[in-house]
Design a protein around this nucleic acid. Structure first.
Lengths: 254, 254
DNA sequence: ACCTGAACACCGTTCAAGT
DNA sequence: ACCTGAACACCGTTCAAGT
């Protein structure tokens, strides 16, 4: 009864794992987590479930592959100047970004990816929980870690410091998917300002005895910018790294 | 054909939302996320699906309630001394914990909760993503925020600083569910040491060109303690808060 | 080697009917 | 008001069969 979807013609391109993952990402983006079903996928790819199972072991593996593909694209960041104006003065020496800026860029890359693909927040948690030896964790870890090494953190702290940064980024990005996803779910026309207003008001109406702090802070929710706040958190961790180093070198000198 | 489960006798206690949520948490703990089904739940509660739907709107609400219950318990931390030796010297004045220690305690409370309930990592991401105006976010936020206020952070920074801490905690706790859950999934007898060994080895075998940092750090994975590393991250953020304040007051004095 | 599509077991949810 | 349990629509996955 539902109107026949316009994609029923025989597919021309051969099926491949790549095409399947690509279709999965599209489906997740447009229809959300619950929108990714093998039935929707077979229709979109004009094939049967068996064909998909030939290329992919099961749904978990498909979700992992989709997550990995998006993360890989997100963390493969170059210096922003390089792509901003591709044809202008290619011989101009790239401004050597500080390691701190590099970390901010990588972090923002992931942050924005979660913003564009809200399902990524949950999947990141799920995939990371499933296998730290998978491809997703090392990818993120490596990208942040290389910049941490460029700070003058002693080698013995590399693992701890990088972990702290990665944890913050994942936590903050996950939490932010909230806002973008929820805001999107609201009736169109209700924009971000109205959305923050809703949250702020809800917080203001909490029980004064149980939630004094949250109530006190409700107003600050209203005007805040997610990216700005995200970066402020990064800077807090970076400041902590610097401060800890200084404390250590001071102690070492005595 | 399956052996009749021992719980088929008529239930004595009346059904209630509370009992349902309690059973859901048990099911999640023992059988994992995929183990929580309405069928398993009806069997355990010796009832039919309709009875459950009388108390709970749907599975999403049930998961939200389960998450909220566990988070509420985790975040309601008292000074550790109070419960350690309940009957010894009750009039002894409690050592006034510093706000920093308070933050560490709350954070560890959540960290350990995720450790005991690995499904919490995913659910935290999901629930937070679904509704920041729900009960889960304010609960965590409030508990951390009250301690942030006790540090001498200027009021204008309350929201940002508390958010940063909460994001770190959620990210780190989520990532850690990894380890406990994965370690649990391994054949019994393979303990944590062996598990870390596996991860470490996997990281050592990554492509040297693409993953130089992760490889360099692989060895540090082997001996590390999750809780210690988690706290080190908290301390990094706390150090960042202090450093930022000093910088600000220094600037203000000029 | 790659794909088809009917079939299977299982899941969340509904609802007419009971007490 | 609270509970029962058959029924429904939908899902992931399998597999004998085709090319």
């Amino acid at each position: 009864m539902a109107t026949r979807t316009r994609r029923s013609q025989r597919r021309t391109e051969a099926l491949s794992r790549e095409r399947i993952v690509e279709a999965a990402v599209e489906l997740l983006d447009t229809a959300g987590e619950s929108g990714l079903t093998f039935r929707a996928l077979t229709e979109r790819l004009a094939t049967g479930p068996g064909a998909i199972y030939w290329h992919v072991a099961n749904k978990d593996e498909l979700l992992a592959a989709a997550t990995d593909a998006v993360v890989a694209a997100a963390v493969a960041v170059r210096a922003p100047a390089a792509e901003a104006l591709p044809s202008s003065a290619p011989e101009e020496p790239e401004p050597p970004a500080s390691p701190q800026d590099g970390i901010r860029t990588v972090a923002l890359g992931l942050f924005d990816a979660v913003d564009r693909h809200p399902w990524l927040a949950t999947q990141l948690a799920t995939q990371l929980a499933r296998s730290p030896w998978g491809t997703v964790t090392p990818r993120i870890f490596e990208s942040v870690g290389q910049r941490v090494r460029a700070l003058d953190v002693p080698e013995s702290s590399w693992f701890t410091v990088t972990s702290a940064l990665v944890h913050y980024v994942l936590g903050a990005a996950g939490q932010n998917a909230v806002n973008s996803a929820s805001a999107r779910a609201l009736p169109p026309g209700v924009d971000r300002t109205r959305f923050l207003d809703t949250v702020s008001t809800a917080w203001e109406e909490l029980d004064p005895d149980e939630y004094p702090f949250t109530r006190a802070v409700a107003d600050q929710v209203r005007g805040h910018d997610d990216r700005e706040q995200f970066l402020a958190g990064i800077d807090l961790v970076l400041a902590g790294i610097t401060a800890t180093q200084h404390r250590e070198s001071r102690t070492a000198q005595e």
